[in-house]
């Protein structure tokens, strides 16, 4: 069971984001980390490969400048190797151009299963995984909360508005994993040391047979052209609870005729 897990390296969400005023795109300089959302796919991929009794997890990611710090985290968790599409031409890529680069890189790993997060923390378009599936001509199951491998197919519990659906799907397939469905392992010391030696294959856009005009800001046929301040919300009354503050909430509900 060879699994590809796509991993996005993003600016730390704990630090406030900033827009580049020239391009109106999110600034991505400074240290990047693995998107937490991807840790569930990495864990799921490792578990499935272990259960299958063979095979490995290959990471696929992209960057403008050879950044690997986020990939090392996933390698330390236990992934065997990584493919990094790294090219300055990728700067400003939208979801579809990202999908084009990722799908080319994924097909080189010839996986049985491709796992991705339902959406990234920073861009959160949530469309890239399905675009990847379409470009690879593969079936996709999104919003998975459980995956069971059954020979050459998988059974997936797919989250719905009202509960979940059981979905069967032949392999290879693209599956997106929702957060919280498995507990991502913490890398141990040996894992962290090993990760430094694990292979990361770096490829450029032209290595993948893509034209640079298909990716980056030239391939992205949409733009943010203006950023304006939103209406600010005023903070109201603030009460320190000394045992009776719930009465304030009751009064508030009463004013709104909620109760």
């Amino acid at each position: 069971m060879n699994v590809v897990v796509c991993v996005k390296q993003i600016p730390d969400p704990a630090t406030p984001g900033e827009m580049d005023s020239q391009t109106n795109t999110l600034k991505r300089d400074g240290k990047l980390i693995m998107d937490d959302s991807d840790s569930y796919g990495v864990e799921m991929g490792l578990q499935l490969a272990e259960q299958a009794g063979g095979g490995e997890v290959t990471l696929v990611s992209m960057a403008q400048d050879g950044e690997t710090s986020g990939l090392r985290t996933a390698l330390a968790m236990g992934a065997a190797k990584a493919i990094l599409v790294s090219d300055p031409a990728l700067k400003g890529s939208d979801a579809l151009s990202t999908a084009k680069a990722l799908s080319k890189a994924i097909s080189r790993a010839n996986p049985d299963l491709i796992l991705m997060a339902t959406e990234s923390t920073d861009g959160y378009t949530g469309t890239t995984p399905v675009q990847v599936a379409e470009l690879l001509g593969l079936p996709s199951v999104t919003f998975a909360k459980k995956i069971t491998v059954d020979g050459s197919s998988i059974k997936v519990e797919r989250q719905t508005e009202a509960g979940y659906d059981e979905v069967t799907c032949p392999l290879p397939a693209v599956v997106t994993v929702t957060a919280g469905v498995v507990e991502p392992r913490y890398p141990n010391f040996k894992g962290i040391m090993d990760a430094k030696k694990k292979p990361v294959e770096e490829l450029t856009v032209s290595d993948l047979g893509l034209d640079v005009s298909e990716v980056g800001s030239s391939g992205s046929r949409q733009e943010v052209f203006e950023i304006v301040a939103a209406d600010a919300r005023q903070a109201g009354e603030k009460v320190v609870d000394e045992g009776e503050a719930h009465q304030k909430v009751i009064e508030f509900f009463e004013q709104l005729k909620l109760i």
Partner: peptide, 12 residues
């Protein structure tokens, strides 16, 4: 193949 994912049961 791209449409091969099938719903076999629905849990509400």
């Amino acid at each position: 193949n791209s449409g091969a994912a099938k719903i076999v049961a629905t849990h509400v």
